[in-house]
Design a protein around this nucleic acid. Structure first.
Length: 504
RNA sequence: UCCUUGAUAGCUCAGCUGGUUAGAGCGAGUGACUGUUAAUCACUAGGUCCCUGGUUCGAGCCCAGGUCAGGGAGCCA
């Protein structure tokens, strides 16, 4: 019997099994908030209605004690799930002494050190449910569209794109690398099956310490034969629309728990703006406006807002600190103010962080050099102006991967496309149409100083029945992070692996 | 690798210009209270002030080096 099904058993006696998420006590009454992975339910143990022994068990329950509770399901609109259980019996399964995660705010380091327990908390539960829904919808979309799921190897012989640093490992005495992308293998599989997608872990050994990087993350990489870049963009758009719409429809409760304002997510039904690199650069540099808003000016305003808010927060902290000092205030009220002050100080620290960062971003946007790839801050600058994902395509070929097709209309450009999520989240998808011209491809491999013999099999794909084809890679965690509007990718995966974080 | 901020009780933090015995809230323990929603109230316990060295009559505070962590750049999904 699961908490999510309580509504089907009103006024009946049932048994729930789970963990105590919270407990409150008063004389003769114990309230246990039971958590079973499907929801929360308040269980009331009344001394007048159960034996002394059972009541004693209930009193002994501490945070995260596992237990089974039998009782009658009663409708009660005041409660979390709308129902509560009038207990007739309580059995402790496993005790829990000094559970480390208290019912209050904790710092990131502490929470990350206790990730194995942190996952039990409601917010993390909701995020993982949304992650699960996203994964489900991804498979559903591709399966319904006739894609075959195939997997690329994780051990690879070389740094395939030659760009980022990879994790080196030992493969029976030979050096090998953990895969940074299944892309090239995806192309081979698409030539066999038509349309395929891979879904697996990917590894990058960059020592990145930012809110958007992980060392190990999950990537979805579709590859389609007989698709050009524009059809590719159509697929990306339909795909993201389906996934986000499904989350909106199926995860209302979870989105509410994490406090996600879904207004901007609803815009997913509108067409995604498609900008060329040239257009995007003009917007970043402030030479062109978006709906009358200038990127540079809007960021300057943001900085002013940050400073103004800092003053407000400082004033409120000072005011509350004065209030606490005045004698005669009730203990509860002091505690309330203290908690508020703690929260405000955290906000102030975040604002100070913004105050330090924004000028650098402004500088980088103003002095953006045409021909360069976008940096993290440039993505932030441009996506702030849009209310839905945007697609930027036709990039200077020098800054993109060697396998991207040169634009037939202008050989300066490669037919790559990046999808940038709104609300400052930046790149969630990178893809494009693949080069089919054997000569150009060989030139590119030489230009990037990649070992030709490692790519012979890849070149075979052009030698034997080459066709136009395209695909993309979607970073699952970045998608989850944006959909949930998380402050950092590390909360989007059960056990994040990142620079300096290997345990738990 | 570089820039930047930080490390004080189990947790979140305060600690003035270097000055006596380092504080608060939460949590924990004990007690009171019959419907609580981070319950409330009273009491109790709880400290290697990150490490090493230096300056000083005196260092949580100043200086040097290190360790770890947060944020950012580069790189990327």
């Amino acid at each position: 019997m699961y908490i999510k099904d309580l509504s089907l058993h009103e006024e009946k006696e049932i048994t729930l099994q789970g963990w105590a998420a919270n407990k409150r006590e008063s004389k003769g009454l114990v309230f246990i908030i039971l958590r079973d992975g499907t929801g929360l339910c308040q269980c009331v143990v009344d001394a007048n209605k159960v034996s002394e022994e059972i009541f004693a068990h209930a009193q002994k329950v501490s945070l995260e004690t596992s237990l089974s509770i039998t009782g009658t399901v009663v409708k009660d609109d005041r409660q979390v799930g709308g129902y509560e259980l009038q207990a007739t019996s309580v059995t402790i399964i496993g005790g829990s002494v000094d559970y480390p995660i208290a019912k209050k705010e904790h710092g990131v380091e502490f929470l990350m050190d206790h990730r194995h327990l942190w996952l039990r908390s409601q917010r993390q539960w909701a995020i993982m449910k949304i992650r699960n829904r996203i994964i489900y919808s991804i498979h559903q979309f591709f399966q319904e569209e006739g894609y075959i799921q195939m997997d690329a190897p994780l051990f690879t012989a070389n740094a395939s794109e030659g760009t980022s640093t990879l994790f080196e490992t030992d493969f029976y005495g030979e050096p090998s690398y953990l895969s940074q992308s299944g892309q090239l293998y995806g192309e081979a599989m698409a030539m066999a099956m038509g349309k395929i997608y891979t879904f697996g872990p990917t590894f990058r050994a960059e020592k990145s310490k930012t809110r958007r990087h992980l060392s190990e993350f999950w990537m979805i990489e579709p590859e389609m034969a007989f698709h050009d870049i524009f059809q590719n963009m159509d697929v990306i758009e339909a795909f993201l629309r389906k996934v986000v719409s499904d989350v909106l429809a199926e995860c209302k409760n979870e989105l509410a728990i994490i406090g996600r304002d879904t207004a901007l997510l609803e815009n997913i039904v509108k067409p995604f703006p498609r900008l060329t690199y040239d257009e995007a650069v003009k917007i970043i540099k402030g030479e062109e406006n978006v709906n009358g808003v200038n990127a540079i000016e809007s960021l300057e305003e943001e900085l002013k807002k940050v400073v103004a808010r800092m003053e407000e927060v400082k004033a409120e902290i000072a005011e509350r600190e004065e209030k606490i000092k005045v004698p005669g205030m009730k203990k509860g009220e002091i505690g309330f103010n203290q908690a508020k002050i703690d929260k405000l100080k955290q906000e102030l620290a975040d604002l100070e962080e913004d105050q330090r960062n924004i000028p650098g971003w402004l500088n980088s946007a103003r002095n953006f050099e045409y021909g360069n790839d976008f940096g993290g801050s440039d993505e932030t600058v441009i996506t702030r102006l849009f209310d839905r994902p945007i697609m930027v395509y036709n990039w200077p070929h020098e800054v993109k991967a060697f396998y991207l097709k040169r634009d037939p209309n202008n050989s300066h450009f490669a037919r790559g496309v990046d999808v940038l999520a709104p609300e400052g989240y930046g790149e969630i998808v990178g893809g494009g149409e693949r080069e089919t011209d054997l000569t150009l491809l060989v030139d590119k491999i030489n230009e990037h100083k990649l070992p030709m013999e490692a790519f012979e099999w890849y070149l075979d794909l052009r030698r034997f029945g080459s066709v136009p084809h395209a695909g993309f890679g979607l970073g699952l965690e970045r998608l989850v992070t944006w959909v949930c509007k998380l402050p950092h990718v590390r909360e989007s995966i059960p056990f994040p692996r990142m620079y300096g974080r290997l345990k738990p």
